[in-house]
């Protein structure tokens, strides 16, 4: 079934994360998701965009991130696209909190959190474009 689509493009700077959260919140609320689900989607998209800014684009501003919210009757899908370097899925390991504290590491929870907050998280890359597709089912 065709979805209602809403799009937002932001520059690759953490300054705009607030705008991303507001964008997701607006459309998720409009799609009648529960308050908890809205909060979870906002966070997952924040984490995904933070990863794009810090990893795909290596912290460099001057690039762009395209975010699309697709609203279906039974679910909401968020697609985040960038043209940075590829996310290395093979190198990704589930974080161990105690090990992290010992090594004074401060990052690496983003993908872990996204998977906990959403029903599905998929990464793909084609024609030099990274795509992160996250789905939240309406319960």
């Amino acid at each position: 079934m065709a979805a209602d689509t809403h799009t937002l493009t932001i520059p690759s700077s953490t300054r705009f994360l607030e705008d991303v959260r507001e964008f997701v919140e607006t459309h998720a609320e409009h799609a009648n998701f529960s308050e908890i689900a809205v909060t979870q989607m906002k966070m997952a998209v924040d984490e995904a965009c933070t990863n794009v800014i810090e990893h795909s684009y290596g912290g460099q501003s001057g690039h762009s991130i395209d975010i699309a919210v697709l609203v279906y009757p039974d679910k909401l899908v968020v697609v985040i696209k960038d043209k940075g370097i590829e996310f290395d899925r093979k190198a990704y390991k589930e974080p161990d909190l105690i090990q992290f504290a010992k090594t004074k590491k401060s990052g690496g929870f983003g993908v872990h959190l996204m998977k906990k907050l959403m029903d599905e998280v998929e990464y793909r890359r084609s024609s030099g474009i990274n795509e992160c597709r996250m789905t939240k089912l309406k319960s």
Binding site: R21, K42, A101, K105, S106, F109, L113
Partner: peptide, 17 residues
């Protein structure tokens, strides 16, 4: 009002020290 993993990471980075 809100925290993301970047915020949580700060606590992780300093707790041992």
């Amino acid at each position: 009002l809100y925290i993301s993993s970047a915020g949580l990471g700060v606590f992780m980075a300093y707790i041992e020290e």
